[in-house]
Nucleic acid binder design. Structure first.
Length: 705
DNA sequence: AAAAAAG
């Protein structure tokens, strides 16, 4: 691939676009005529906008003053174009400097800890010193571990000890485990004083678990409630994006041994009553298809592999049943902190979460955490989030205040485990979100380390749930290591791209991409405040393209891994709130992000992995709503053409005839078929049922385990 | 080949 050369060409092209050639330095978007429109007579592209109308529109855009959008938080677009644009550029630089500085001090997570609430113990140990009542001697042992810095072998030793103590006998059913948890709980009473700070005040919004094993729900807190759930009148905060009428059309396929009967509503018998009040506050009325199944599956103690697009209620699919079980059964029995540990060493208190959710990007982790906060409201369960790029001390402080449900990205979690600030020994629920990404080459070693190489209970002592929009067969096989007798759930079409996304493929050479993009953006009606998400392959291209769009008066921002976390968050926030209606993104934004109102996804560069394509276009057309996807295709993308055509067929999309031609040309390029995934089919079906050819040795093909 | 995830 002539990528470097390519980039140069694009630079030159941008210089020739008239963006820098006017003496005033004024971008001349209005006069720009796309080269491919001048040189080429016909293209497969939409010809609805002629050159003149394009010019007219962008001219108006410059003048009418109504476009007072901002790039990130810079507002501009007033009367004097020239002055404004200069100011803007300066502002942008200043702003970058400011944000870089910001990155060095506290994150939001740190800020929402009021200094007054910065109380000492969170109840992991009680102050009367009655901790000694813990029957067995692991207390001492764990203490020693701590003093020795918790070396690996010690951790493993104490884990096995924890397991036999805390979870009682291995053969016992889950209820037995919970019961033993409850009866032991009073022994150290760790959760009974959690709702109270050291001044005796209520720590608002959090409940507790009483000594005699009942759930104490905290008082309502209207300020927090507004913060979490929004005002009822504010349409922005309403939960939108779920098209309920379409729900029943979505097919669901469940396979595995003894699949539990699905539920049809949010009701008390399976779900905890307090969770229902929170679900109600969030204005969820009906379970989505994935929730209908995941609720009874998790409640009955089963593992789950779920294939469902995000926005189909995936997050609720694991949060609801997990929180419900935690509410019902209370905190674990094992003493999270041994007696006599507090003197002089209080700062190194460890968090012992009961649930762990792993996500592949920081933004996704943060999004899951925000949901967890909603549904854990007023309960004894404290959600926490940790991820890189943000101030670790704020995260540590939050962990110290108690952490029962931890959402994390792998790197930072490993860091915290190494620092001895998080223990996984009491994990009952493990969730891998975007599991196929978590188990692919880049992540698998870290995941294996967290799940198998630290102190996490083994597969039989925890419940493991995996969610993703795509589940390639080889990933399913890999995932067996982390699951036991799981139920496989497939929601939506087998190809997983639903028909409510209109997918257009256009043939565009690399050097024409920018001008075609401008045409598309210009021809979008400005009245609809829909968001446009543009995917590129490289971080560099993300920067270049967003700068290019800004030069052409489009409200654009960008998100990619080379931007600071502050910048990433700000870009996403600005996009979410429609202050910036265009976002250029790398793969970082491809998965899981739930951004309502993305009406158009543009694959400026197509990914080399068809699964990434599926995830990317899944940012639009969420939960039964319609969306549009446009992809720029050229010969460089012929590697995915076969899978792309299969996908389009499955989703009943129009297939341009030239695409079929490319497919024939590209047929069997004598290399290995795509990632060795057998024929590319069976992507989202239970491999145990639809096994297929190259089953690797050991396990038989179907149905066992 | 690139991106993501720890500094």
């Amino acid at each position: 691939m002539s990528n470097g050369k390519n980039g140069q060409r694009l630079d030159e092209q941008s210089a020739n676009l008239g963006t820098r050639d006017t003496p005033s330095g004024r971008p001349s978007a209005g006069r720009y005529v796309p080269p491919h429109m001048r040189n080429r007579s016909t293209e497969t592209k939409d010809t609805s906008s002629s050159n003149t109308s394009t010019d007219q529109r962008s001219g108006d855009r410059n003048r009418d003053g109504g476009n007072s959008w901002a790039s990130d938080d810079n507002s501009w677009g007033k009367e004097d174009d020239r002055q404004d644009r200069r100011d803007y550029r300066r502002d942008d630089r200043r702003d970058d400097a400011r944000s870089n500085r910001n990155d060095t001090y506290s994150s939001e997570a740190a800020e929402d800890v009021s200094p007054l609430q910065n109380r000492r113990p969170n109840g992991w140990h009680n102050r009367n010193g009655s901790t000694s009542a813990i029957g067995w001697d692991s207390g001492k042992r764990t203490t020693r571990n701590e003093q020795w810095g918790g070396s690996r072998s010690d951790l493993i030793f104490s884990t096995s000890h924890n397991r036999s103590g805390g979870w009682s006998d291995r053969a016992s059913s889950q209820t037995d485990r919970w019961n033993s948890a409850r009866s032991r709980n009073s022994a150290y009473g760790s959760y009974s004083n959690r709702g109270i700070d050291e001044f005796g005040r209520k720590d608002e919004g959090y409940g507790s678990w009483s000594v005699d094993g009942t759930h104490i729900i905290a008082a309502k807190n209207s300020r927090l409630e507004r913060d979490l759930f929004g005002c009822p009148d504010d349409p922005d905060r309403q939960h939108t994006g779920i098209n309920f009428e379409k729900y029943d059309d979505i097919p669901v396929e469940a396979s595995g041994n003894n699949v539990p009967q699905c539920v049809e509503a949010f009701t008390n018998p399976p779900l905890d009553a307090h969770l229902l009040t929170n679900i109600d506050l969030a204005r969820y009325t009906t379970p989505t298809p994935v929730q209908k199944y995941s609720i009874p599956i998790v409640a009955s103690g089963r593992d789950l592999m779920a294939c469902a697009q995000t926005g189909s209620g995936k997050t609720g699919g694991f949060l609801f049943p997990i929180l419900s079980e935690l509410f019902k059964h209370g905190p674990p029995s094992t003493p999270p902190e041994p007696a006599g540990y507090s003197r002089g060493m209080a700062r190194t208190r460890k968090a012992y979460p009961s649930g762990l959710i792993l996500a592949p990007t920081r933004e996704l982790a943060s999004q899951i955490y925000e949901e967890a906060r909603k549904f854990a409201y007023r309960s004894w369960v404290r959600p926490c989030v940790v991820y890189g790029g943000a101030d670790i001390y704020g995260q540590l402080r939050n962990l110290e205040r108690g952490c029962d449900l931890l959402t994390a990205t792998p790197g930072r979690l490993v860091d915290l485990i190494e620092r001895g600030r998080v223990s996984l020994s009491l994990i009952r629920y493990l969730v891998l979100d975007e599991a196929d990404r978590m188990l692919d080459m880049g992540f698998e070693p870290q995941i294996r380390r967290i799940v198998e190489g630290e102190d996490m209970p083994d597969v039989h002592q925890r419940q493991t749930l995996m969610f993703s929009a795509t589940f390639p067969r080889d990933i399913q096989i890999l995932a067996r290591d982390f699951l036991k007798d799981y139920v496989f759930l497939s929601v939506g079409r087998v190809g997983s791209t639903s028909e409510n996304i209109t997918q257009k493929i256009e043939y565009v050479e690399d050097e024409d991409k920018r001008s075609v993009l401008l045409d598309i953006l210009h021809s979008q009606p400005e009245t609809e405040r829909g968001l446009t998400l543009i995917f590129v392959e490289t971080k560099r291209m993300a920067d270049m393209l967003s700068a290019f769009l800004i030069q052409h008066n489009f409200p654009a921002t960008s998100i990619h891994g080379d931007r600071s976390q502050k910048e990433r968050e700000r870009a996403l926030d600005s996009f979410r709130s429609a202050r910036t209606t265009i976002m250029v993104a790398t793969a970082v934004a491809a998965r899981g992000l739930d951004i309502p109102n993305v009406t158009h996804v543009i694959n400026f560069d197509l990914p080399t992995d068809i699964d990434d394509y599926v995830h990317r276009i899944g940012r639009t057309g969420r939960a039964g709503n319609v969306g549009l996807s446009t992809a720029f295709f050229n010969r460089g993308n012929k590697g995915i053409v076969k899978y792309l055509i299969d996908l389009l067929k499955e989703a009943n999309q129009e297939i341009p005839s030239w695409l079929e031609t490319v497919a024939r040309e590209a047929a069997v390029p004598a290399g290995r078929p795509y990632k060795g995934r057998g024929g590319g089919r069976g992507q989202n079906r239970d491999y145990r049922k639809f096994g297929g050819s190259s089953e690797r040795g050991g396990q038989g093909s179907a149905g066992n385990e």
